[in-house]
Amino acid sequence: MKIAVLVKQVPGSESALRVGTEEQWVDESALDFEMNESDSYALEEALLIKEKSAAGGEVVVVSMGPPERTPKVIREALAKGADRGIHIHEEPPYENDPFLIAGIFASALRDEQFDLLLSGLQSADLATGQTGVILGEFLEMATATLVMATELQDGSIKVKRELESGWSQWITLPLPASITIQSGLNQPRYPSLRGIMGAKKKEIKVLSKADLIAGNTPLQSWERLYVHKKEKRTEMIEGDLNQVVDQLVNVLRTEIKVL
C-alpha cells in the first residue's frame, strides 16, 4: 500500500487574525500555525491502514506552503510515523483556487502511482473542501468525502461516509482512491521521542509550485479579504466575576425563567 496524505498548515484556532495590507491574505507575522484538524485525522488513518496491512507499505506526507514554516508540519507527520515527505514550495501570493491547487498536487503526485490518497475534508482557512475530490478526479481515482471509518480490502477500500443528521452509508471504492477524512474517526497519536529523533533522518523531497503549475491559471480568485460586519444583537453581561454571576442568575431566573 502506497499512501499519500495531504496535510496543510493553518492558523491555530485561537489565533487573532488580522487582514494583511493587500487585503489578499492574513498578516502572518503574529500567527501560530498548526496542522489542519481533519488532516491530522487523515494522517492517523493512513498510519493505521499501513500498520494493519500485512504487506506493509509507505505513508508519504505532502504539503504545499512557504519554506519558512511548512517543514515543521511535515516533520511533525514524519515524527508520528510517516515514511517520507514531499514539500511543494510556494511563495506568496498563495493560490486560492481549489481546482488549480488540486492540479498542482496532481502534477506532483501522478508519477508516484499511489494506491490511496487521504486528505482532510476541508481546511480551516480556505474551507472549500474540494482539493481531495478534484485531485482524485485528475488522477482518475474513485473518490469519497466525509469519511468516518475505513476497511481495506483486496483491491478496494470500504468506507463509512457521514450523511446529514446522524445518517451514514458504507461505500466501496476500487483502488486507487482519494478519500477525504472527517474529524473524529480515530484518536491521532502524539509523536514519541524516538519518532521525533528518527524524523530528522527521513527524506523530504522539495518541488516547486512554479514548475508544477505549468502555465495553468485559476478558475476563480479572491478579490478582497475583510472582516464581515456583524449584526450584534447579543446583550453583553459585564463586570467582575461576582457581578457577572449575579447578573447571569438574574437573567436565567427573571428573563428566561429556567430557574
Binding site: D97, S221, E223, R224, L225
Partner: peptide
C-alpha cells in the same frame, strides 16, 4: 467565509 468564519472573502470567477 474563511478562517473559521472569522473573515470573509469576495470571490470572482475568472
Amino acid at each position: 467565509q474563511v478562517f473559521n468564519a472569522k473573515l470573509v472573502v469576495d470571490v470572482a470567477p475568472q
